[in-house]
């Protein structure tokens, strides 16, 4: 059994699909009441990890405990303590809001006496008052998402796994969704939520950065931002951007397109800002302002992910 204060513990968790290693030796410790963001590019192994933690996939090796229960040996006990929202939208479209809630209330074995209250809570949380008898497929994305969350928390699980709950939802609805997540967290619910929206990372207590099945970094957004990139970060206004990235390869530690600008991590032993300008202008590019910026999470992310790549090439 794992420590009392830990909601989720994974040790050396791996999942292999034939020759493909989807999750590679993942260690994870999440305390009760934490909101942890699971961040990484598509195919990084986020969903696979969440599914293993829900007891839906059997780990190839390693162990995981959720709410103190072994996900491999006792998946049913795990399931009684979790709420899970899968990546694919997963309510019954041909049922009404009320019927969906009733169905999930039934299979989560919500006591009859409490059901009405919980349903009202879920409905008001999703902002669906007065729409209880609408068929789900007629609802807009944000509503569906909130309803799905409502269904997943009907049985008041202490732990929630949300797999990209906000993908494909408009920004306003995304923000509302995160408000809900924080409301739940303030009630003591532990939440592990995967996303590929970098801005959402800022909403989390901690971030687990995952790439190619490996945990690359873990820490609060503040901690991660302080990570040493290995050099100063500069923002370069130039065009064309793609060619500039190629031109800088080898001269800087890292260069990446960032919106309509270029972000580059300067090598302390390599060219400085002005030398970079010359280098780019020699190749016939237009170079505007070059200025120092403080790294955002995304910068750290790009750096860590590409660092991981190099490791792979070497090993």
């Amino acid at each position: 059994m794992s420590g009392e204060s830990k909601a989720i513990v994974a040790q050396g968790l791996s999942k292999r699909f034939q020759s493909f290693l989807a999750v590679d030796n993942l260690d994870l410790e999440i305390a009760k009441g934490e909101v942890v963001g699971f961040i990484g590019p598509n195919g990084a192994g986020k969903s696979t990890t969440l599914r293993m933690l829900c007891g839906l996939l059997r780990p190839s090796s390693g162990k995981a405990h959720v709410a103190g229960y072994d996900v491999e040996k006792d998946p049913e006990a795990v399931r009684e303590h979790i709420g899970y929202m899968s990546q694919k939208f997963s309510l019954y479209n041909d049922l009404t809001v009320r019927e969906n809630l009733r169905f999930f209330g039934g299979i989560y074995r919500v006591p009859k006496k409490e059901f009405a209250g919980r349903m009202n809570f879920a409905v008001s949380m999703a902002g669906l008052e007065g729409r209880e008898d609408m068929l789900v497929h007629t609802l807009a994305g944000g509503w569906k998402q909130r309803l799905a969350l409502g269904c997943a928390i009907l049985h008041r699980p202490p732990i929630l796994f949300l797999d990209e709950p906000t993908s494909g939802v408009e920004p306003e609805a995304r923000r509302r969704f995160w408000d809900l997540i924080h409301d739940l967290a303030s009630d003591g619910v532990t939440i592990l939520v995967s996303t590929h929206y970098m801005d959402e990372a800022e909403y989390c207590n901690r971030i687990a950065l995952i790439n190619r099945g490996r945990l690359v970094a873990m820490g609060s957004p503040g901690e991660l931002r302080l990570r040493d990139l290995g050099g100063k970060l500069v923002e370069i206004a130039c065009s064309p951007l793609g060619a500039a990235v190629n031109a800088l390869a080898g001269s800087v530690i890292e260069a990446a397109i960032f919106g309509d600008r270029l972000h580059a991590v300067l090598d302390p032993n390599g060219p400085d800002g002005e030398e970079i300008r010359k280098l780019l202008e020699e190749k016939g590019m237009n170079v505007g302002a070059i200025r120092m910026v403080s790294p955002s999470l995304e910068d750290v992310f790009v750096r860590l992910v590409s660092g991981g790549k190099e490791e792979r090439v070497l090993s």
Partner: peptide, 13 residues
């Protein structure tokens, strides 16, 4: 096919 099964099997049913 509709993805509801993944939801269903994550419950104690």
């Amino acid at each position: 096919e509709r993805g509801t099964m993944e939801q269903l099997i994550s419950t104690p049913i």
